[in-house]
Nucleic acid binder design. Sequence first.
DNA 1: ATCGCACTGTGAACCACTTCACAATGCACA
DNA 2: TGTGCATTGTGAAGTGGTTCACAGTGCGAT
Lengths: 209, 209
Amino acid sequence: MVAHRTIERLSVYRRIGTLMHGKGTMHVFSHELAARSGSTAAQVRRDLMLAGITGSPAKGYLVSALIARVNAVLDHPEGLQVALIGVGNLGRAFLAYFLGRKANLNIVAAFDADPAKVGRVIQGCRCLPMQDLVPTCRSLGVHVGLVTVPADQAQAVTDALLEAGVRGILNFAPAKIRVPEGVFVEHVDITALVEKVGYFAARQNKETP
Amino acid sequence: MVAHRTIERLSVYRRIGTLMHGKGTMHVFSHELAARSGSTAAQVRRDLMLAGITGSPAKGYLVSALIARVNAVLDHPEGLQVALIGVGNLGRAFLAYFLGRKANLNIVAAFDADPAKVGRVIQGCRCLPMQDLVPTCRSLGVHVGLVTVPADQAQAVTDALLEAGVRGILNFAPAKIRVPEGVFVEHVDITALVEKVGYFAARQNKETP
DNA sequence: ATCGCACTGTGAACCACTTCACAATGCACA
DNA sequence: TGTGCATTGTGAAGTGGTTCACAGTGCGAT
């Protein structure tokens, strides 16, 4: 219903709104959100319109209303249950980053194939063995899987997540994963991103003649 | 000159090509690259065309030629010099991931503000203090900065990178960074991505009526 | 030697997202 | 009370990226 990019930006607007709310700011103009989010005023207005957020020409948007509406659009009623698979360096980073940060976004389980890691509490989250993945994720009602395993294990982990009923996967493994229709996958390819930045870092200035 | 997305995908095609090359495969069809990269055959052909890679209807694309041409397009002649700023969990993950992986992509320096980390060798890379950033990056000829610091330090780190002559930044901090015209910034917002996956995980199946 | 076939290369159509541009709004100030 | 002004909300135009669709190609089979 709402466009992909818009959904991402709504999350950003909410973060900015929450920050402003904490400082006691009541209202915000589209151009202020634009400046703080790296977007444009027109884009912000369009996004908020799509989300059903409305402002006044005189005061701008009411910060509290903006937050409430984004919550209603993005959040799951009972919170978003996330499982992390692959407690390597990257997995640990996400555990540390997300634990206790957002009330509505919880990493509720972490899994790893390495017996040395299983059973240990890493970044405040107990590391479980792979064979527990399906039953644990199913019983916890996990919505989203965060895949931070090596490329050659990505598909096996994906298949397990699918079996556990997970319908959204954020994949950091440098490998394509196959999923059936109706399951949402976002693939972040760090190497490709670094190389892209390297490419444009070199050319960008030479481009415009 | 070549589109953003195409550049990202070329990196992926090269990874796949390298894998195939290692297994002795000589030729590859667009639909094979499509299946392995999560793209479509038409898209692959268009990308390769834009990169000046040409194949034959009978044999497909010559893997070695594909790799060579992508190298010529993406790589810097003397390799891509990358600096990492912020040796927290995420920074450590990238150090571990990139060290020694790609001949043409080197993290040549790591920086952190925490005195406890400075001087220590973390994941095989010596951690330097922030005040060394400008001179070190300048003398090493760093092209790209990988920013993995907390949000409130992102702009200060960016300013230092700019002063050091860096013209491409991959920003993982949940904050917008300001850069002058001609500097390329890629912003990866993990929280927004997780929330997006959560959103579409819930709706996707309900969407099509 | 010829035919059929699967594939490449690419103009053209298509689609999603962004930006423009402006009427409508309602506060601030005279 | 009226005028000016900065801002919202949104059709319409623009942009960049993707997919369609098909002519052109050359190997393998006959």
